[in-house]
Design a protein around this nucleic acid. Structure first.
Lengths: 163, 163
DNA sequence: CTCAGTGCAAAGGATTTGCATGCCG
DNA sequence: CGGCATGCAAATCCTTTGCACTGAG
């Protein structure tokens, strides 16, 4: 249930080596565009939307961004996240980034990474596996998100409370 | 961090009473369309997409469905879920349904509900709160999803493996 | 009666796709 | 060279919105 090609990549070089290897495994080319994409995700250090990627990488066609993220996802380089219902977020996948969870601000939509105790992580995993198997479900991975308000949005007045 | 207007509604009558009360609180009417919507979600007994709701409620305009789900969400009757990147899912919110988590099949996209030990639930909550506060983040609620393959999709050949 | 709710159709955005061209292996 | 990747633009799909009409309080 957990990828274990060692811990997260520590340097850009190591990152690119790992990515190249993953792409090779699926007979995909590590082109300049894909390299730039991977580097942008690495630098962002948190899940980003396509819109953000587009801003980070001017000159790269949006359609290429979508296509490349798709390829990278299927090769296990990036992970597609459903944290918001309007925009899709992407982050580097787990052989490249350590296992972590997300803090999602309901105010501004920003997503940041957090980590758990190894112990708690194991308990959750074990529990999930048990419940899953009872339901005839084969577990692949889990996601744990905390929704709330970031410091900035907490001080700012809540926009448009209902009624 | 947890709604506590008592446990989940046990009967349709109780359900409608609670919903009516929530809507009243926000000066919203409990119309026939909204009542049908709530009943459909109740009967589904799992998170559903707008497309599914539309099929379950022929005759109710799609725009009304969107608008009503929006109102119901803001009144705390339903919860909008980001479990898939293509379709939004909806379920009854927590005063009406007990706290639970989701099993998401990566094959067919079906989402089903699961529950955890109260004990583990508390550990997770405590841990999340701690990490959140360290980050200056005010927690509202969490979501814990397990992605995997349901029994049906496990037996069926995996569609379109890459490369 | 009056205003919120509804249906229908058009608009708006995000994502995908077709096709001609350029580049890497 | 040959095929895959890319850019551009058109097409799709989900969701939102405008407007006139109906219905609930």
């Amino acid at each position: 249930m957990k990828a274990s090609d060692g811990p997260a990549a520590a340097t850009p070089d190591e990152l690119h080596n790992k990515v190249a290897s993953l792409l090779n495994r699926s007979r995909q080319r590590y082109t300049t565009g894909r390299r730039r994409l991977v580097e942008a995700l690495w630098n962002a250090a948190r899940p980003v939307t396509i819109r953000e990627v587009t801003h980070l990488l001017p000159g790269l066609a949006q359609s290429s961004t979508y296509r490349n993220l798709d390829v990278l996802e299927r090769c296990g380089v990036v992970r597609r996240l459903a944290v918001a219902t309007d925009h899709t977020h992407f982050e580097l996948a787990e052989p490249l980034l350590d296992h972590h969870h997300h803090l999602i601000c309901v105010g501004c939509g920003t997503v940041s990474d957090i980590q758990f105790d190894h112990e708690l992580e194991e308990m959750v995993d074990r529990n999930l596996s048990d419940v899953a198997h009872e339901a005839g479900f084969t577990p692949l991975h889990h996601s744990l998100d905390l929704h709330g308000r970031c410091a900035d949005c907490e001080t700012t007045q809540m926009e448009g409370r209902f009624a």
